[in-house]
Amino acid sequence: MTFEELKPKIIDITSNNSFTRDERLLKVCELLEENIEYYTWVGFYFANHENRTLHLGPYVGAPTDHTVIPFGKGICGQVALSDKNFVVPDVAAQDNYIACSFTVKSEIVVPLFVNGENIGQIDIDSNVLDPFTEEDERFLEFVNQEVAKLY
């Protein structure tokens, strides 16, 4: 399924008030993981600005020990500080990378903004080297714009 075909499905999920916010977030993760072949782990992290930590929210994929990540640590922690998308074509070449699984080859993290504040991010791992394009970035920005409406 193309990104354009997925967009109305994202809107359907995020606007469905019969589910809780976390249920909708999980459904978004499931939709992406099931329909984009190189997305092997899809999840959300949410910021605690007082403690300067990210906390794992709904996700699909292999279980992770990284349920709390300090700002600045790993790709997710760097995005919490930079407020910018971070695409890692090859995690083995990244100094400040937190390994979740030996099968992960690449990662993309896109910040989630609500009223101009970075409240978290969508994090996607892939078992393929360098699969993420600018189209992925624009699509995930769209996903986060829809998710932001839940806050």
Rank of each mutant, 00 (worst) to 15 (best):
I124H: 06
V128R: 11
L54K: 01
C100S: 01
K73P: 04
T20V: 06
G74V: 13
S18K: 12
P58D: 02
T133M: 04
N16S: 14
A148F: 12
K9G: 02
R52Y: 04
E4Y: 15
I11R: 06
E107P: 04
T53I: 10
L112N: 09
P111H: 09
N16W: 06
G77D: 00
C100Y: 10
Q121I: 04
Y38F: 11
Q94W: 12
G74K: 03
P70D: 14
D136E: 04
V147R: 02
I122W: 14
E134I: 11
Y59A: 00
Y45W: 03
D130H: 15
I36F: 11
K84L: 13
G74A: 12
H55A: 05
H55L: 06
P70N: 07
Q78S: 11
N115E: 11
Y38P: 03
G43S: 03
W41L: 01
H49P: 13
H55W: 02
F46R: 00
T2W: 11
V104Y: 14
F46E: 00
L31Y: 13
F86W: 09
G74C: 07
F44L: 05
E30F: 10
N115K: 13
T103N: 05
F44S: 06
L54W: 08
L81Q: 07
D65V: 07
G72F: 04
L54S: 04
D22T: 12
G43L: 03
L129I: 10
E134N: 14
K27M: 15
R52N: 11
Q121L: 09
Y39P: 06
E137M: 05
T20P: 01
L81P: 07
S106A: 14
G120I: 10
W41E: 00
A93Q: 12
F113K: 12
D90H: 15
L112V: 10
D123P: 01
G57S: 13
G120D: 05
G120A: 14
N118D: 05
N118Q: 03
F46S: 02
L112I: 10
N48G: 04
F46M: 08
T53H: 07
L31F: 09
Y39V: 02
E117D: 07
T53S: 06
I108L: 03
C100L: 07
K105C: 11
D136I: 01
F86I: 08
K7S: 12
F46H: 04
C76V: 05
Q121E: 15
F86R: 12
E37T: 11
L140C: 01
V42C: 13
Y151G: 00
V42E: 00
G43C: 10
